[in-house]
Design a protein around this nucleic acid. Sequence first.
RNA 1: GCUCUAUUAGCAUAAUGGUUAGUGCAUCCGACUUUCUAUCGGAAGAUAAGGGUUCGAUUCCCUUAUAGAGUACCA
Length: 503
Amino acid sequence: MTKPVRVRFAPSPTGPLHIGGVRTALFNYLFAKKHNGTFVLRIEDTDQNRYVEGAEDYIVESLNWCNIPFDEGPNKNEKFGPYRQSERKHLYKTYADELIKKGHAYYAFDTAETLDFHRKDHEAKGKTFIYNWHNRLKLSNSLALSEEEVKAKLDAEEDYVIRFKSPQDETLHLKDIIRGAIKIDTNVLDDKVLFKSDGMPTYHLANIVDDHLMEISHVIRGEEWLPSLALHYQLYDAFGWNAPEFAHLPLILKPTGKGKLSKRDGDKLGFPVFPLAWTDPKSDDVSRGYKEDGYFPDAMVNFLAFLGWNPGTEQEIFSLEELVNAFDLERVNKAGARFDPDKIKWFNHYYMQEQDNYGLAIAFQNTRTELTAIDTQYIEMVIALVKERASFVSDFWSLSHFFFLAPSSYDEKASKKAIKEDTAGILTNVKALIESVDDFTVDNLQNTVKGWITSNEIGFGKVMMPLRLALVGALQGPDVFDIIYMIGKTETLKRIDGLIAIA
RNA sequence: GCUCUAUUAGCAUAAUGGUUAGUGCAUCCGACUUUCUAUCGGAAGAUAAGGGUUCGAUUCCCUUAUAGAGUACCA
């Protein structure tokens, strides 16, 4: 190992971080920790038009909630700071100028309108307009114009951009850790804008300059950047810098498999695409978040880790620490990973079972006013009984309300199934039976009632179903005798009377 | 259109140049002396298509199809 591992997550603060961004951050984090490296957060806010208030804080909070905090970044351990590109603005122009001096870049004065015209014109003729070697001399730039003309334009403070001069007739050999060798013919590349007329660099320039200055060793980013890799390689070359290693993560696809998961899919498809809920500062629209929907961060991280990666073993449940140990970029998939909301639910169910019942009881208690007066220990016991069928804290109420409140009505379908002509009579007997149990334990209740059923040859369904209906109001819930034990004798008798009255 | 990338069951994926292609989710069926969306047990289900290389390919190569990404003074 020659260089220390330094990776970065470089989102642009244009809104809430979406789940794909979290996955990218996670893979960077895992890679960094695995190699005792540093995980850097850099804010790429070079597009002033798209800047959204609060987005940066949201990103930081999201990483923290997921337990994948950055080591270096805005307001934290600023060795290579500043970490916001807007605050590094002064740097980029110098580097752009250097490229011009070296002949790798040039000034271009074409207006957005003329370029637009060319694009449309070409499209109409069935061609594609590419600003590069084959037409750059016909356009308005410092390669086509004389030195005097250029100087005059610059002196007159005309708007200009700086474009990279992409070479002709070369074959580029790119390397990606996940995808292997990729060959690119430079003739199909265009002369990308490096420096915008508003005085800000584009992503391409800022990214390369910052990655170099921050001594980034590995660039781990989404596949949408793969087409830009050729440019980035050339940029490193033009500066005479050593390029870091690159790894392009597979896209995260919509559950339907058509297209990459986008921010708007959440509301459309009924599951969150953001780690935390987000309120749009302009429209006040609220988007759901995994945290608010009751997902545990460990479950989400575990799920996300398997989006495009797997350990090669059959183990699926991984703590963050285990992920760090097992993670390997070589084992990242090339094909896009479809987002499966059911699977993350499954993970959450698993992590729910691992949670401490008392903690869950408190969380549950806080969600319901009906519970404020109830002893937390009682709630804890209820949780123990219903937890195995819960995936979220919000599931608890529908799974357990009958431990706290008598049924106010009886489920129609269940009533039809459970109530027969002889039901009232049977329940009267059962009521007397339960009343007679002095040592009120689950075992005693069970033995008494079941013994009675067997010796009278009544049939379990005829007794157990109405009894459950009386207690719960529906045919669901944990073991009937657990319920009787929990709510106590008086309440049990009362509820049986309730059903007898209408049976 | 052009460039790049991908393609194992409904989905996520594992493995392999050579007898039954493994696992999880979802599905279906049983069991839990009778609730169940839980748990347990079981079942069904796949190498996109066509060529080639080879004694033999799902695995290597080519073509096609399909899908996705990029093609902005957005990142």
